[in-house]
Simulated scan of single mutants.
Amino acid sequence: MQHTKPYSFYVLIILQFLLGVGAVFGGVFLILDPSGEMLKMPIEMLETSPFNSFFIPGMILLLSLGVYPLIITVALITKWEFNFMKKLALFKDKHWAWNHSLYIGFATIIWITTQIYMIQDVHVIHIVYIGWGLLIQIFTLVPGVQAYFTVNRTTHDQYILSNQEEQALLKR
């Protein structure tokens, strides 16, 4: 039985890729200009945070929401095998990249929630990125995407087949 990529797979790839690209640019700009002026972010935003410049937040942004989602985008597309990342997967019946896609959704929401808490202010962009994180989680959890990333195909196919047979019997 051939498994094609569902439409929702492509939406997930776009969400991950755009998050990664945006965060790489944002992180690099914050590292290059820790005062935040390049991005029109006043340093006063950090008064209630533990940071006195945007350098550390820029590094965290670059790596956790920039490079990481880009790596996961490639892994989702290629189903790249990486034993270390497999060990970090909570759902062993799914490819490790699927697990990490879910983690990125959580990381995005946690990043923005922490940012809101630290700067003690909410902007429209915060709501957008919380929604973005939720969309990543939703599209990662779509049944077709889950089925596509199920590692043990035989068991999954048998389940689908038995489900179809059961439906056929119920129709009789």
Rank of each mutant, 00 (worst) to 15 (best):
W111S: 07
T155M: 11
L90M: 14
P143M: 08
Y148W: 10
L88R: 07
H123T: 11
I109R: 06
V145A: 04
P143Q: 08
W98T: 00
I109G: 08
P50T: 02
H156Q: 14
G26L: 11
F149Y: 15
P42Q: 03
F55G: 02
L169I: 15
F51A: 10
P69V: 01
I77R: 06
L62Q: 02
A75W: 00
N99I: 06
G131T: 11
L39I: 11
E81L: 07
V67A: 08
P6I: 01
K5F: 03
F149C: 02
R172C: 07
L134T: 12
W80R: 06
E165T: 12
L102G: 04
L12R: 02
S101V: 03
N163D: 13
Y129T: 02
L30C: 05
M118S: 09
G144V: 02
F55T: 05
M38S: 14
Y68W: 12
L135A: 12
P50S: 10
I112N: 02
Q115E: 15
R172K: 15
L161Q: 13
P50M: 09
Y148K: 03
I119D: 01
E37P: 04
T155S: 14
G133F: 03
Y68P: 00
Q120I: 08
I72H: 04
K40N: 15
E44H: 06
H3R: 14
P69R: 01
F82E: 13
W132L: 15
Q164E: 14
T150K: 07
I43K: 02
G58N: 01
G66H: 01
V74R: 03
T73K: 04
V142R: 04
M45F: 13
S53K: 00
T78C: 09
G22I: 02
I104T: 07
H3Q: 11
P42A: 08
S8I: 04
F139V: 08
F17N: 01
V128L: 14
S53A: 11
M1S: 13
L12H: 02
T108D: 10
Q120H: 12
K87I: 09
F25V: 13
V28Q: 01
V142I: 12
M38T: 12
G26C: 11
L169Y: 12
E81D: 15
F139T: 03
P143S: 10
L141I: 05
F106Q: 09
G133N: 10
P42G: 09
I56W: 05
S64M: 15
G105Y: 04
F82I: 12
F139S: 03
S162A: 10
I77N: 04
L12C: 05
V142D: 03
L102Y: 06
W111K: 05
K92D: 06
L135W: 07
N83V: 13
L46F: 09
G36D: 00
N83L: 11
T155I: 13
M118T: 07
D93T: 11
V67L: 15
F54M: 11
P34L: 02
L90K: 07
F106V: 14
V128H: 08
P57T: 11
S35Q: 03
L76S: 06
L19K: 01
Y129E: 02
S101A: 12
L19T: 05
T4D: 13
E44I: 04
F91V: 14
L46I: 06
A107L: 14
I43Y: 00
I71K: 01
T155D: 13
I60C: 06
L169H: 12
M59V: 14
P69E: 02
